[in-house]
Design a protein around this nucleic acid. Sequence first.
DNA 1: CTTCTTCTGATGTACGTTAGTCAGAAATGG
DNA 2: CCATTTCTGACTAACGTACATCAGAAGAAG
Lengths: 342, 342
Amino acid sequence: MSRPTVHDVARVANVSLSTVDRVLNGRNGVRAATQERVRAAMKQLGYERDLMAANLSRQRIYKIRFVIPDGPNSFMRNLAAELETHARIALRDRTEIGVSLVPPFDGRALAAELRRAKEAAADGVVMVATESAEVRQAVSELRAAGIQVVTLISDLSASARGHFVGIDNVSAGRTAAGLLGRFCAGRPGRIAIVAGSMLVRDHVERRLGFEQVMHAEFPELKLLPPIEGGDEAATVDRLLTDLLREHPDIVGIYSLGGGNRGLRNALDRAGPDPRPMVVGHELTDQSRVALQDGVFDAVLQQDIRKEVASALIIIRNLIEAIPIDAHTGLIHTEIFLRDNLP
Amino acid sequence: MSRPTVHDVARVANVSLSTVDRVLNGRNGVRAATQERVRAAMKQLGYERDLMAANLSRQRIYKIRFVIPDGPNSFMRNLAAELETHARIALRDRTEIGVSLVPPFDGRALAAELRRAKEAAADGVVMVATESAEVRQAVSELRAAGIQVVTLISDLSASARGHFVGIDNVSAGRTAAGLLGRFCAGRPGRIAIVAGSMLVRDHVERRLGFEQVMHAEFPELKLLPPIEGGDEAATVDRLLTDLLREHPDIVGIYSLGGGNRGLRNALDRAGPDPRPMVVGHELTDQSRVALQDGVFDAVLQQDIRKEVASALIIIRNLIEAIPIDAHTGLIHTEIFLRDNLP
DNA sequence: CTTCTTCTGATGTACGTTAGTCAGAAATGG
DNA sequence: CCATTTCTGACTAACGTACATCAGAAGAAG
C-alpha cells in the first residue's frame, strides 16, 4: 500500500481538494468544524504531506546562514572549509548555504551579524554562540521573525534557540578529568587549565565537568585557576610559560580551547624534566603531531562534519515543523590516543 | 540562479526534450553523436537531475532489506529495535525497510536469506556479515542482479559489497590495548581475550589491533589465546571461569564480543581479590551497570543509530549512483568511562 | 531514387503538491 | 426572506521529471 495523498484525505473527509489544501497550509476561509473533519481524516489515514512534491511545487529553496568565528583557530577554519564543500552538496536538497565570519568572543559583533541574517530573510541560522545579552536578544528577534536558530558547538544559556548541535561539554570535561586523573596516578601535584574565554559556554561547561570529577575522584591533584588565552597561540604561550615558572609542581594540563601551538611552545621551552601529562581538545594538525610526539596524551574531539550534517538536518526539520529525533544533535566526544589516530 | 533543468539542456544541446530524456535514462534510439552533444550540454550547464522530481514522477520506493543476527545478544536486539523506529521515519523518504533475522555465526543461513532478498526484488540489502564462501557467493549474485549490498558492523573480506558501515575494528582493538595497558601499569601478568567467534570479521580485527599494540607497547603483559564464547552468557561464564582458575595471574580482560553477563558472573564468582581490569564492547544494560559498579573500566561502543542512518544514506546513494562521501560510513569508536556515561 | 530502418521531435499524461480564480452554496444578519 | 458575508467546490496551471505514442526526418541499403 502506498501512502495516502491529499485526494484520499479529501474523499474521506468529504470535502474538496481545495479545502484540504487550505487546512494543510493554514490558509483562512475554512469553518472550524470542517477543519476538524479534515484533520480527523488526516489522522485516520495517517496522512503525511509528501515534502518532496510540496517543495517541488512551491519551488522552495531553504536559505541557511552559518555564523561562525573568524580568526586563526584551526578548528574554526576547518569548519569554514567543511561548509564550503557542504554548500555544493546541499544544493541537491534545495538548500542554499551562506557563511558569515565574525570576530571571536565578541557578542556585539555576533548580534549585529544575526540581525543582518534577518534582513537577508534567511529561513534558518546556525551559529557558534557567544554568551551575551545582546546575542540572546538578537536570537529572540530572529525567532519572532519566524527564523529558526540552531546553536553549533557552543550553546546559549536559557536561550530561545531551537536546538543545539554539539558535544555534551560537561561530559567532555568529566572525561578529560577521568583520563588525566588516571594518567597522573601516583604523582600528586597541580593541574593547570588552559581555556579560551569564559564567555563561551562550551569552555565554561568543560571546566565545570573537569572540576567536578577532579575534586570527587582525584583529590590529591590540586587545580589551578584557569588561564584565558583567547585561543591565540602567543597569549597561551606567554601565560602558560609564566604559570609553569610559578608552579614547578604542575603534573597535568587540561587545554580545553584552542591555541595549542602556544601550549606546545611553552612546554618545549620548559624542558622535559618531569613532563606534565596533557589532555587537549580538537584534532588539528598541531594536536595530531603533539599526540604522535608524546607531548599530548589524549585529545578529545568533536567531528565537525557530523555536526554540520546534523545541524542541516535539524534546522530543516525545525523549518518544516518535523519532530526531531533527540539523538540527531547529540554528537559524541571522540577520544584519541596515539594508538587510534585516524 | 536556480539550477538547470532538462529543458535548459535540450535548448543548449539543440535537441528535443524527448532526446534528453532518452539519454538521461539510457533508453536506446539515440545516435552516438547526438548523445555526445547532450552530455556536453549537461556538463556545460552543470546539470544534475532533480532526484525529488524524478522519484515523484516514477513513483519510486526504495526497498531495503536488513539482514541481521538473531539471538539473545543485547546489541543486536537494540539494532532490531532501532530498525523498527527507522522504518516509520524512512517512509517519508520513499524508503521501505524490511528486516530478516538469521542465526548468528551461520554463513549458510545468511546466504540463504540473501537469496531470498534477491527473489523479493529488493533495491538494496544491508547485512551484518559472517565470513564464509557461501556468503561471498551470494553477495556476488545480488550485485550481479543489480542489488546493492552494504555491510554493517562486521565486514566481508575481499568482498563485492558496495560499502561498509561501522567502526574501524582494528583501531578499536588498538584503543582497547592502549587503555587496558595503561590501566594495568605496574602489575605484570596475563591478559585474557574473550571473543564471540573468529568467523566474524569484526572480532578478528579487534583481536588483531589489540595484539598489535599489546606486543609493541606493553610487553610485560602476556596474552592468552582468545576463548570463543559465541556471544552467549552461559558459554562465556563457563570458559572464563575455567580460564581464571587455570591462570590466577590474569590482570586484565578484553571482551571484544557479547555475552558480558556471563563475564560478569564469572568475575563475581572468582571474587574480588586482585580484580582484573576489564575493557569491553557495546554499551548495553549489563555493561552500563558493570561500569557503574567498577567491574568494567571502559566500554568501547559504536552508535548503532548513526550506523543505521549512515547505512541508509549510503545504500540510497549507491542505488542512485551518487558519489559517496568517504566520511559517511566511518563511525567513530566511542569510549565510555564511568565518568561520561550518558 | 526508392524503400526501409533507425533516429528524433512533438505532444500528452502522470506523480503529489501549491496556489490561484470564480461560481455557487451555506450560514449569518437584519 | 432577502441581502450579505463567509465557506466550499470545481477547475487550472504550474514544479521537474518519467514514460508512452505517433508522426516525420534523416540515414542506409537496394
